[in-house]
Design a binder for these strands. Structure first.
Length: 876
RNA sequence: AGGCGCAUAGCUCAGUGGCAGAGCGCCACCCUUACAAGGUGGAGGUCCGCGGUUCAAUCCCGCGUGCGCCUACCA
């Protein structure tokens, strides 16, 4: 066996194993097994910073991946990168001090790729530091042609299937990013607006006062609306009014969705102030008056206000309304403004020709229901979001760094042409379409599409891509791990696309993780200064301890509060494991694993029994992604049962036992230790691999080993073992209470067991005697020390079902009865007589436990100890 | 405004229709040959409140309160 350092030092160990794993293939997906576990790992946006939220998400993945390898699955833990997108474009513009239009598209794209590669490198380093068992041969980057070619293919297939179309339709538009965005990319921001009360003069009738927060939209006003049941506007529907300042005439319509409680009960309809306007516009076939430009200014329709930015226009028009006498009143109002999720700029709604993907709500939800949601209630979010969708998914973006549409438009008639699959990947700006003549008009000139795809078009096919699409027939991947904040995007779009392209659910299980809060309980934020970087924790305590603290933070799905004290506690536990292994090593040699047919004693059989129980329970918890429960049990077993109880019991045998006795203990300790390390390895992969290497184990790496499967001894062995453990503990406690050294010799210990033991094995006092450092005598009957029954304890589990509504009275009667009588009747008759409401009832003796105390001494100084399975007399 | 989740020791969290649990923190004692980064013991609880179901509720049901999230928020 190798030399083993005396103390646990995370940093040295972790550095060494990181390198070892890098050069090995322990995490490699083999691809030739019928027990596959394929993980649809989230492809993060390469910001260069792998934060603690990522760490939580990836740790759950890693726990699952490592566990599934141990139980013999062929695990694929791939890592993708969702490269495309605006933030990178902005960053590149900053870094190079250029605007994206300053250089040719392809050159700009190249700069973005280089930038992204740096960012990926930095995140990958943190991933390795944290010990994620990613198979880097399964890495993909959405900016690579091999990948975006697949994105294009998915687009073409859906186009040919009429699930993608091109149309003019109002879309969410970010005036700052100057691109269309999807509903999922619009986030509401709370803000205080100003409600303007202004009068629209009537053309041949009285005027009506409306309330609006957006006077700058007056130029785009095309109608007015009131609730048709609103008495204030009885008989006025159909009247015509003149828009202040701009003069166009608009009609008053009646529509129930107007809230008569708000403002004046009358509202102006503009194209477009919000989605409601779009609905009215479509329903009443109103005129389209567009007042805004793509970059957020007013256009020629606004007359003298043309060229003003939207906020400036609001002020200018409000001032003029006031000057002309239209403005009656202003008041502040709280409002929620739909804003761009990338830059928080309030979005506008513009009507634009775009590419759309049709949304089939029912199909998406059906697939969603086929997936196991963990926790279950997270499915509700998908359902709520999906049912609330009222627009199709706009997938075109007016940007550069993204997957290009494989499409051209006929220069003569505008007919779009989409490339066939065999021509992909293709950049339409650099290649002509493979057909020459326009099928619609026969024209021969083609204009390449310059719009690019929404990045969710890339990332919504990850499940398919990792499963080998399109070369292999798709079957659902095992696991999708992700945060709840992107159910409406990543999960939603993936369900949509996998359904559309493969007619299947994308995954069997979806595991939703919560957020990570700071040590102060608040959301991590720069302003609070409570941000903790994973690398910072690793440097201080190591990844192994950090990983445990995250696993114990709560059950998956709930938010996790990062706490330094939990990291420290994990570090202490790992030190314990380190020392326990070091202890074990001093008793092992190369032959220990080969010990056969050992002469197991009660303590050995008990530990093996516990080990099997723990392996089952921990495995069940891991199956259900209950990493918190799994680790908790494991810690309890290792610390309490193995390190405290068992080791203390068998030290005597290990140090001084005869060879056969010693071997049984060595064997048991070896089995328990190596099994514990294996079960712990998903949580703390570094130190467990290190400790594994210091033990005479067969497999090279603990991560190539298998989940423990221990032959379980019989249940009656458990009781006999528990008795030994309990008694040893009781005597130790008594010594501690008496101020006696724990290793002090005692005159003798007398044992009065209260359990049945098997014929094969009686009570085994050998180890106990060593542990308490006294001769142990097995006695029957009751201790010679006088003991007095003092209290009757009632088990309501027995009494309740039998006596139903008399339970309370029965319990009371038992507790009031003379404990000595209860004890006597229980022993002699097996049942106890009680009087309840003048009636005599018989209670099963099983229902009561009579607590006794020692009251007198009989000559010799002695102490009576009570344990669950025995009474113990200690003679010092 | 609707929907969902949460509420248990000082803190962070498990848990169960039948006497309430862990880690950390706190107090006291103990260097016992793997480990003082340890061991032993202790203090500390209206299991958010009110009703209901039940022999029995921290657990199941209803209502309420507080917190968090999702969705719609309205001109």
């Amino acid at each position: 066996m190798t030399e083993m350092p005396e103390t646990y030092e995370a940093s040295t160990i972790e550095t060494r194993w990181r390198e070892a794993w890098r050069d090995s293939d322990v995490y490699r997906y083999q691809g030739d097994s019928d027990r596959e576990y394929i993980i649809d790992t989230p492809p993060p946006y390469p910001t260069g910073d792998l934060h603690i939220g990522h760490a939580l998400n990836w740790l759950y993945i890693d726990f699952a991946a490592r566990y599934h390898r141990l139980i013999g699955d062929d695990v694929m833990f791939p890592q993708g990168w969702d490269c495309h997108g605006l933030p990178t474009e902005v960053k590149v513009e900053e870094n190079h001090d250029i605007h994206r239009t300053d250089v040719p598209r392809d050159e700009f794209r190249q700069l973005c790729i280089e930038h992204t590669e740096d960012q990926i490198e930095s995140m990958r380093e943190t991933m390795e530091q944290l010990g994620f068992s990613i198979d880097w041969e399964q890495e993909y980057r959405t900016m690579d042609p091999e990948y975006w070619g697949l994105t294009q293919r998915s687009f073409v297939e859906m186009f040919e299937d009429d699930r993608v179309y091109r149309d003019e339709h109002p879309v969410n538009w970010c005036p700052r990013c100057q691109t269309a965005i999807a509903d999922a990319e619009v986030e509401p921001i709370e803000r205080e607006g100003t409600l303007h009360y202004l009068t629209f003069p009537g053309v041949d009738n009285d005027g009506i006062e409306i309330a609006t927060t957006r006077p700058e939209l007056l130029a785009a006003c095309v109608a007015m609306a009131v609730d048709p049941t609103d008495e204030r506007f009885e008989d006025r529907i159909g009247e015509t009014f003149e828009v202040p300042l701009f003069g166009q005439e608009v009609e008053l319509i009646g529509d129930e969705s107007v809230d008569s409680e708000f403002g004046t009960g009358a509202v102006m309809i503009c194209t477009f102030g919000d989605k409601q306007d779009v609905n009215w516009w479509a329903e009443y076939d109103l005129e389209l008056r567009t007042a805004f430009t793509e970059d957020g200014h007013l256009n020629e329709l606004a007359g003298e206000y043309e060229g003003l930015r939207i906020p400036e226009a609001k002020d200018a028009i409000a001032a003029d309304l006031d000057g002309e006498g239209y403005l009656n009143e202003v008041e502040p109002t709280d409002q929620m403004v739909g804003s761009c999720w990338r830059c928080d700029t309030p979005i506008e709604i513009l009507s634009k020709e775009q590419w759309f993907v049709t949304i089939d709500q029912d199909a998406i939800l059906e697939r969603g229901q086929e997936v196991d949601w963990i926790p279950e209630h997270m499915y509700d979010r998908l359902e709520e979001w999906t049912l609330g969708m009222d627009w199709d998914w706009v997938i075109s973006r007016q940007r550069v760094f993204a997957t290009p549409f494989p499409a051209w438009f006929c220069a003569d008639c505008g007919e779009p042409h989409v490339a066939p699959i065999e021509d992909l990947p293709v950049k339409p700006g650099e290649a002509a379409p493979s057909i020459e003549r326009c099928p619609a008009c026969g024209g021969g000139d083609w204009i390449p599409e310059t719009d690019v795809m929404d990045t969710w078009m890339d990332s919504s096919i990850t499940a398919m891509v990792v499963a080998g699409w399109p070369d292999e027939p798709f079957s659902p991947t095992a696991l999708r791990p992700q945060g709840h904040d992107i159910i409406r995007t990543w999960a939603f779009y993936t369900l949509l696309r996998t359904e559309a392209l493969c007619e299947a659910r994308p995954w069997d299980d979806i595991l939703i993780n919560g957020m990570v809060f700071g040590d102060d309980g608040n959301k991590m934020s720069k302003s609070r200064g409570n941000i903790v970087a994973p690398t910072e924790v690793v440097e201080e305590y190591g990844a192994d301890a950090f990983r445990q603290s995250i696993a114990l933070g709560g059950q998956p799905g709930s938010d996790v509060q990062f706490q330094w004290k939990e990291v420290k506690s994990a570090d202490r536990f790992l030190t314990k494991v380190w020392n326990a292994t070091r202890f074990g090593r001093t008793h092992f040699d190369e032959e220990t694993p080969d010990i056969t047919d050992p002469a197991l004693r009660a303590a050995d059989r008990w530990l093996l029994w516990r080990l099997q129980e723990v392996a089952d329970d921990v495995g069940a918890a891991m199956d259900e992604y209950r990493f918190d429960a799994a680790l908790r049990q494991l810690r309890e077993f290792i610390w309490s049962d193995l390190a405290d109880d068992y080791v203390e019991l068998v030290k005597g045998r290990l140090y001084e036992g005869r060879p056969g006795e010693r071997d049984a203990a060595r064997y048991t300790l070896f089995i328990a230790l190596t099994a514990s390390l294996r079960m712990l390895s998903p949580f703390s992969p570094f130190v467990t691999d290190e400790l594994w290497s210091h033990l005479p184990t067969k497999a090279d790496s603990i991560h190539a080993a298998s989940w423990p499967d221990v032959e379980s001894p019989r249940v009656d062995d458990r009781d006999a073992g528990e008795l030994i453990v309990d008694v040893a503990e009781a005597v130790r406690r008594w010594k501690s209470d008496q101020g006696i050294a724990l290793n002090a010799e005692l005159e003798r210990v007398e044992l009065y067991p209260e359990i049945e033991t098997s014929e094969e094995y009686g009570i085994d006092t050998y180890d106990l005697s060593n542990a308490v450092n006294a001769p142990v005598y097995l006695r029957s009957g009751t201790p010679s020390i006088e003991i007095v029954p003092v209290e009757v304890e009632v088990d309501q589990r027995v009494v309740g079902p039998e006596f139903r509504d008399q339970t309370g009275a029965v319990v009371q009667a038992l507790q009031d009865a003379d404990p000595a009588r209860v004890k006597r009747e229980k022993r002699r008759q097996g049942e106890i007589e009680v009087q309840v409401n003048g009636e005599v009832l018989l209670v099963d003796g099983e229902a009561v436990t009579v607590r006794e105390e020692q009251r007198a001494e009989s000559g010799e100084e002695a102490a009576l100890l009570e344990t669950e399975h025995a009474q113990v007399v200690v003679v010092p």
